[in-house]
Design a protein around this nucleic acid. Structure first.
Length: 629
DNA sequence: TCCATCTGTCATGTA
DNA sequence: TATACATGACAGATG
């Protein structure tokens, strides 16, 4: 059974892509029921809707999604190839888009847009949840084989129109009736094959009462946010229901601004064929082979009612762009904002070009700034659309805006959270609240608003002084519309700086100016630091001089004190010497002449009176000995 | 007007 | 080799 669903989902997906590539529209609503059940797991095993009981009362319920009758379904599916042969087969593209929306929702949790994976995952979920399912599980063997044998034919065999049988409008009748139900907003809903015995409102109520539906809605929400600004989780059910019931196209999802108008167009486009089919169909609309063939026939007939112009009008060039974008999303991840920006500014080559045109939104806000401040585009001239994304549509103060820059800046900031804060602050500063509408200011996040207030001083300076207060580099940056502030350019790490230069399609002059700004800014800071260090050195040397002078004064005082003490000691020694000789007497009792004799202190402390003559000779010998040494 | 100082910038060297 | 940094020298601005 798993393989069967795998073939089913893969086949349908590939077939959808193929048909889209050739510009053929396919009404997948006719094939959505099993797919949706696979995606959302609303099989009888998953859903709490009394599916089994309804099978007996609902026409067409004979074909359970797990029924071996699916073999016939695949046989009929092969007939889908004929749609391609019909060429003009067209059903509202919104149906296909709605299916893609569901696929996205199922995969939103994984953050990828691999529709194949989504379908397969959902199929596996259903597989796991269908262990207690109907007896169809016991019969999956034959149908599985048949599906395997049938699907390759779907891809390989050419369309055979003769397989299309009459009475194809039966299921379309169901479709139309359900689509026109007042409890059901539009025609996407009928793909669920709501039994006639129950009102649509009750069924939807039961559907939303499913406990597992909550998780599904959680997964869907990111997608719904794209198409609707509402974010409240309490509205998940409403959003989901609206998503299912609303006529949502892929392009509408990508371009919410066009949603209402495009939806109206699609509704008007679809109402015509369905109303026609309604008059000629019965209430029986099950997925048995005959009815499926009738489906195709009905689809073919209904779409043939449209003129070629009508058909091709919906399959404009954007279809291929959408397909490319879808494939891009499947491969590299998907950012609706980026895609929308790519579409909003198809003529913006770099986003930084002097002659680059801007989106109407940006232009309008730029106009507002120009009205307020004349020619000045903003204080610093570095504002980019990064603010418009980060702050919910608030445009920068600068008159020019660069969505491309915005796109890349946002990625950069996401990659580097630390620097992001810094840059964000700069961006808030250069966002210049004076250039924002009051209503926009009210919508600003408190955090960013506080940061903006912190930059108020600089902003006010920019407001008052405008270009006169700008430095040369700032003026250069502004003149070349460089979407970065001088501070950002200078303080940005070299790695991020190089990434910035590489990610943006900057002109050579812009790169040159940016590098000059960075070099001069670095050197300016270096010069400031150098002078500061030099001044510190000078101040330190002054301190050293003062300290050395003080020490010199102190040493002079100490030397004077020592000299004074030495003189005092000499004086006392002379007095003592004279006193000693005055009391000395020779052998005859006569006073000793101090000029002929001298006092000599021995090493043992004894004192001897030695004739000066001998004393001098001993002193000479000692002097000679010391000299010899 | 001259002069001292500040500041930015360039050129060059170093790590 | 590229980059950051340090520093001398120069020029313009300023008080």
């Amino acid at each position: 059974m798993k393989d069967l669903k795998k073939y089913l989902t893969e086949g349908l997906l590939q077939f959808t892509i193929l048909l889209s590539l050739v510009g053929v529209r396919v009404d997948f609503d006719f094939y959505l029921p099993p797919i949706r059940e696979i995606i959302q797991g609303t099989s009888s095993a998953y859903s709490q809707i009394p599916f089994h009981s309804l099978r007996d009362t609902w026409e067409g319920s004979s074909l359970h999604p797990k029924s071996p009758d699916l073999d016939s379904f695949f046989t009929a599916k092969r007939l889908l190839e004929q749609v391609r042969a019909l060429g003009g087969t067209l059903v509202p593209r919104t149906e296909v888009s709605a299916w893609l929306v569901h696929a996205d929702s199922g995969d939103a949790e994984e953050g990828t847009f691999s529709t194949d994976q989504t379908l397969l995952t959902s199929a596996s979920n259903e597989e796991s949840s269908s262990t207690t399912d109907s007896p169809a599980n016991n019969q999956e063997g034959p149908s599985q084989q048949s599906s395997r044998s049938t699907l390759p034919q779907c891809h390989a065999s050419p369309p055979q129109q003769q397989h299309i049988g009459p009475g194809a409008s039966q299921t379309s009748s169901d479709f139309t009736k359900e689509g026109t139900n007042e409890n059901e907003p539009n025609a996407t809903q009928p793909a669920y094959r709501i039994p006639q015995g129950n009102s649509v409102g009750e069924l939807w109520q039961d559907f939303f009462s499913l406990p597992d539906l909550n998780s599904t809605l959680e997964d869907i929400q990111p997608v719904s946010n794209v198409s609707s600004p509402r974010n409240s989780s309490t509205q998940n059910a409403d959003d989901f229901g609206e998503m299912l019931s609303r006529d949502v196209s892929l392009q509408e999802v990508m371009f919410p601004s066009n949603l209402s108008s495009r939806r109206d167009e699609n509704l008007a486009q679809r109402s015509e064929p369905f109303s026609q089919s309604d008059s000629s169909t019965s209430s029986e609309g099950s997925l048995n082979p005959a009815n499926l063939a009738q489906f195709i026939q009905s689809t073919d007939n209904s779409t043939r009612n449209l003129t070629t112009h009508d058909l091709l009008s919906g399959i404009d060039d954007n279809v291929f762009d959408e397909i490319n974008l879808m494939s891009l999303a499947l491969e590299e991840g998907f950012d609706p904002l980026e895609v929308s920006q790519l579409f909003e500014e198809p003529d913006s080559d770099s986003g930084l070009s002097l002659n680059s045109s801007h989106s109407p939104t940006s232009a309008s806000i730029s106009d507002s700034s120009s009205v307020s401040f004349g020619e000045d585009e903003g204080a610093a001239g570095y504002s980019s659309d990064s603010e418009s994304v980060l702050y919910g549509g608030l445009e920068g103060a600068v008159g020019s805006s660069w969505p491309e820059v915005n796109k890349f800046c946002r990625l950069d900031y996401e990659q580097n959270s630390d620097y992001c804060d810094n840059v964000t602050m700069h961006n808030v500063h250069h966002n210049h609240t004076y250039n924002q509408l009051s209503s926009q200011l009210e919508a600003v996040d408190d955090y960013h608003y506080s940061l903006s207030a912190k930059q108020g001083k600089l902003s006010s300076q920019c407001v008052s002084g405008m270009d006169k207060n700008l430095s040369r580099d700032e003026r250069r940056a502004k003149s070349l519309r460089i979407p970065f502030s001088v501070d950002e350019i200078v303080s940005m790490p070299v790695e991020m700086f190089n990434n910035m230069l590489s990610k943006h399609c900057l002109t050579e002059s812009q790169v040159t100016v940016i590098r000059d700004i960075r070099r001069r800014g670095k050197n300016k800071v270096a010069a400031q630091n150098c002078r500061k260090r030099k001044l510190d050195v000078i101040l330190n040397l002054d301190d050293d001089v003062c300290q050395l002078k003080a020490r010199k004064e102190k040493l002079l005082k100490e030397r004077a004190q020592c000299s004074k003490s030495t003189s005092h000691m000499k004086q006392k020694l002379n007095d003592l010497y004279r006193d000693v000789f005055s009391k000395l007497r020779d052998e005859q009792g006569r006073p000793v002449n101090p000029s002929l004799y001298a006092l000599h202190c021995n090493s043992d402390g004894s004192i001897m009176v030695v004739p000066r003559r001998l004393f001098k000779s001993e002193q000479k010998q000692d002097m000679q000995k010391e000299k010899k040494k």
